[in-house]
Design a protein around this nucleic acid. Structure first.
Lengths: 224, 224
DNA sequence: AGGAGTTTGTGAACGGGAGAACAAAACGAG
DNA sequence: CTCGTTTTGTTCTCCCGTTCACAAACTCCT
């Protein structure tokens, strides 16, 4: 007899949290196709996971399905969006407007999935004249006023590795509590600050490892 | 010579494989500073992991340390590189030369970490005149000859989501067996083909979830 | 040479996540 | 109204990964 945790489920496993955005995207896809209802099996296939896993994941949010019927696409989509916290947009600053920073600033997926880039910052003064994705690149020194003005809590680091830690420190000092790091460095931040890293060469190296194994032992099985 | 299994360790856990590149980078960093020896504790701090975990990870490769002393930086660096398979360069093709494709093509970290971009492909014929990062953008139709000529086994997808599955199919049909996918889609590929995905908005959404939680229950602890 | 001090490598306990399997609940047919 | 069908929500078990703790092994100093 559980004491019913209807809205704010207490603790959702990290692995589940990482999959919720995938479900959200699949549901959005269904909605765009005009599908109003889907079973856990359909949604699981679309998200590329096991249906039992999907049902267990959703059960952490509450009982939003109907037995014998399935899930209401729009309703479930909203519930997941609310749980993740993307029913409203999050302001985001991007620091480091090099090749990658450009790409991120122009990435339309951010805007459509709950994020709004409010500022582009770069330490290089020669970049201050540029306008990227409709925003003019501003000095990194402006971070304090920008974070304060827009109540920014999420920062993206797209600088060279050498500058990343200093940028992170400065972000934290100005109240940013979540950082997405594209620089190939291990960041150290205080407790309570969330960091996720995206490392392009690490991903390729993992692929290379498995690739090498395939050619050495072709008769063995494979772990994707 | 091969009494035990010193060279080709049988099966390295996936979680360990994902950390080896981090250790490799930390060791490279040590080598550049002139450090010739390091303890598991030093390396663990530099890689941002627990030292016991690091030692266990390294133990899957063999016993390359010396008790009471530590690890020889250069020797261990080479052993990890050999295990991952980046002692020689891997040829890579990038498909989709939009904003992100540009950034990837220009990313110097690939070259320095065991990968060589041999071709840039795009389905849009208006892009065929462009030269990016010293390579001219070629038609996606050329994939067959390029893959055959350079013995490419790793492909990078940086196309819009709508095109990603078709590109992946075509890659697989031409012998590519490892795919790094930046498009926000779930790819389905045959067994034996490795796929890793990098999804920018998912990473941000995970951060947003934790961020939302912080503001709701500030007295609770945090999972990074 | 021997003992003290380090540091690695690993055995064992622990916790979390994945998947199978099943009971509970809703719908529809007759 | 009752029964069969469908699909969810949940329990149970197994496996992988993390962490602790300690013995083995090496160096240095006396």
């Amino acid at each position: 007899m559980t004491a019913r945790t209807p809205d704010s489920a207490r603790d959702i496993p990290e692995a589940t949290v990482a999959r919720l955005p995938v479900y959200l995207r699949a549901l959005t896809s269904f909605a765009e196709e005009g599908t109003t209802t889907c079973s856990s099996e359909e949604l699981a296939v679309s998200a590329g996971v096991n249906s039992a896993k999907l049902r267990k994941d959703l059960s952490y949010l509450g009982s939003y399905g109907t037995r014998g019927v399935g899930y209401d696409v729009e309703y479930l989509r909203y519930q997941i969006a609310r749980e993740i916290g993307v029913t409203h947009d999050w302001p985001v600053v991007i620091v480091g407007i090099g090749n990658l920073g450009h790409a991120l600033a122009n990435y339309s997926g951010f805007r459509s999935r709950g994020f709004r880039v409010v500022a582009l910052l770069d330490a290089d003064p020669t970049r201050k004249d540029e306008v990227v994705a409709g925003l003019d690149v501003r000095s990194f020194e402006d971070i304090e006023s920008i974070v304060a003005e827009h109540a920014v809590s999420i920062g993206v680091i797209a600088t060279p590795a050498i500058a990343a830690q200093a940028v992170a420190d400065r972000m934290v000092a100005n109240g940013i509590t979540s950082i997405l790091n594209f620089a190939p460095t291990v960041l150290s931040v205080p407790d309570g600050v969330g960091v996720r890293k995206v490392d392009l060469s690490i991903e390729l190296q993992i692929l290379a490892y498995h690739e090498q194994r395939k050619s050495i032992a072709p008769a063995s099985e494979d772990a994707s």
